[in-house]
């Protein structure tokens, strides 16, 4: 089921923004991807050279924080033409549609919620993963599974930052079982 935003027509200039970014073409698109990859490598290498951090698990919190900062800012720009959101679900729906298509040029494919503050956003072809493997390839979707969290951490932070600026404090986790499908779990923290 695809989430529908009731008042998407109000956002005429907002949609034109997303359409121009997608028509701007290749250079625009891969610039972000390459920059993201370099930031990712930088953070990983810095952690590896840091002798204090000798955990088995990679420390991706720095990437996540960068995403948080970007998300916190970007939401100001993306919502400037919007009326106030009715409730939490309305904000999540905005994230799934306009927000995601301006950032990743497609909408979230599936949104699930338990109506108690947990949302699962599923992207069946997440842009940062689609160059690694795809659904049609037989049996090789697991090749880069171990490295995948590095590519996801930034986006988790992005979501968390955006929601934070909309007034929702949350925990965002991601789950990948089959590249390039990615599920983002958003757990809203109630005070």
């Amino acid at each position: 089921m695809k989430p529908q935003v009731a008042d998407s027509k109000i956002n005429s200039s907002g949609t034109s923004v997303s359409s121009t970014t997608s028509t701007l073409g290749e250079a625009n698109e891969c610039l972000f991807e390459f920059l993201h990859a370099e930031i990712m490598n930088y953070v990983i290498e810095k952690n590896a050279s840091d002798s204090n951090v000798k955990n088995t698990e990679e420390n991706l919190s720095e990437l996540e924080w960068m995403g948080f900062g970007v998300g916190y800012r970007i939401i100001e720009r993306l919502t400037r033409e919007w009326v106030r959101f009715k409730d939490e679900l309305d904000m999540i729906k905005f994230i799934c549609t306009d927000y995601w298509s301006s950032l990743y040029h497609k909408q979230i494919d599936n949104l699930k919620t338990n109506h108690h503050g947990t949302y699962v956003l599923q992207d069946n072809e997440f842009r940062l993963l689609k160059h690694l493997a795809n659904h049609n390839s037989n049996n090789n979707n697991k090749q880069y599974l171990r490295e995948c969290p590095r590519l996801i951490a930034f986006t988790c932070g992005l979501l968390r930052g955006s929601l934070a600026n909309l007034g929702i404090s949350s925990i965002v986790k991601a789950e990948i079982t089959l590249i390039p499908t990615c599920k983002f779990h958003v757990e809203v923290q109630r005070v």
């Binding site: 390459f34 990859a37 990712m40 160059h131 690694l132 390839s137 037989n138 090749q143």
Partner: peptide, 23 residues
């Protein structure tokens, strides 16, 4: 370009390992 250059885990100037590229 799509599956080697844009794959951040593929090192350039090294033999290509990506299964997606091969397929």
């Amino acid at each position: 370009v799509e599956y080697v250059v844009k794959n951040p885990f593929c090192k350039l100037n090294e033999p290509i390992q990506s299964e997606l590229f091969k397929s």
